[in-house]
Design a protein around this nucleic acid. Structure first.
Lengths: 213, 213
DNA sequence: TGTACATCAGTGAACGCGCGTTCACTGATGTAC
DNA sequence: TGTACATCAGTGAACGCGCGTTCACTGATGTAC
């Protein structure tokens, strides 16, 4: 037996089997964050954490990799939700979105790392080429950043917010994304660096990278 | 036996035992890059790649983690060397250093990822606090960036290059580092994103983040 | 209302695998005398 | 010059472990009649 005798789990009722799926993803996510390493997400480890037998997982995931896939998909949904919340706030839209992005990453840094840092090359697959942004995980999150950049960039110039599709806006948003990602990643993985105060560095990045007005 | 019968390796001569150490690090580094994952660095896998018996590694490393430590230390030395080379070039110092940094990262992206992305919390260790920069891996590499930033920032203003210690310079260098790291990381891990041309994005980052003159 | 039965949600034991590590060892190479 | 011996560089077999996955199974819950 794999689980400690503590919790005698009773099966979900009929039709509620998919609850276990959510529990599996949550447990895997927690294991990742606690151990700091996606290798902590093992089939047996997840089963142990929830208090089920290891083979029970196969009803919901074809193999162990699929669990990590689900963790990542879940994380992208959470990120998008966080940016939506931030967009709803009053006042400085761009600043608010940027702070939310960095907070999301720093709150659960290992989960964030895995969102972007997972190796995915199927050997023998065709070389990755640029693809339309809509097809990518995180595409909607990126679009929220583009919108916020467009709002600030257009502010002083009488352009309307619809300038989302301006290539300059896209490049500026890309530059900003890159900087936010770099900051969040390094802050988490090199905590001993003498970082300037978070709000100061964030303001520097946003103000310099995004031409306003 | 762990190795394929192919290569009958003969022992190094006396006093040259440490050659094997270098071979181990090189093989581990190659395994990391080929498999995209530091888990590919197993004691047995490394031994197999070199054509030695697994226990032979213990003469040079106390355990398997120490191999990865050595790979990372080696990588930081290489990075510093690359930046030194770039600094020696004529013309645009800052541009040259930034291009070298990104090239280093993109040439062996998995090695680069591991340099910064490794989980290192010894459970129960005191919380990481800011430490003097000199104590960190990569400190000399960062200093080369600071110097290049100072050179450009001071250029038009009659300040001399000695302005390395200006806190503004340090913050600007930090902002730039963060952006370069973010770009290199994301370019490698999200190749399908519609990236703008590398030189254009790099120029945008450098020109906007580093006030010149 | 009772009951046979299908289905759902999950179990328990077993397998083979690659791993890190320990142990006693071997054979070549130098060196003291 | 010869030779005994210490040392160096590395070997081979074995161990116990946790892992992913397969297999035949079980017990509770609904449902058709």
């Amino acid at each position: 037996m794999d689980r400690p005798g503590s919790r005698p789990r009773r099966p979900n009722r009929r039709g509620e089997g998919s609850r276990l799926r959510a529990e599996i993803v949550a447990a895997a996510s927690a294991l990742l964050e606690e151990n700091g390493n996606e290798d902590a997400i093992t089939l047996r480890g997840v089963a142990r954490a929830i208090g089920i037998a290891a083979p029970s997982i196969y009803a919901h995931f074809p193999d162990v990799d699929a669990i990590l896939d689900a963790v990542v998909a879940d994380a992208f949904e959470d990120l998008d939700a966080a940016l939506v919340d931030a967009s709803a706030a009053e006042g400085d839209l761009l600043g608010s979105v940027c702070r939310a992005y960095v907070s999301f990453a720093l709150e659960r840094p290992h989960r964030y790392r895995v969102m972007f840092g997972r190796y995915r090359a199927e050997p023998g697959a065709p070389v990755n080429r640029p693809r339309p942004i809509e097809e990518l995980s995180g595409a909607t999150a990126f679009q929220r950043l583009v919108t916020a950049v467009a709002a600030r960039a257009g502010a002083g110039r009488g352009r309307d917010v619809g300038s989302d599709r301006d290539p300059d806006t896209a490049e500026t948003a890309t530059a900003l994304w890159v900087a936010l990602h770099g900051y969040a990643s390094l802050r988490a993985s090199v905590p001993a660096f003498p970082w300037p105060p978070e709000d100061a560095l964030l303001r520097t990045l946003v103000d310099r990278l995004v031409p306003s007005g």
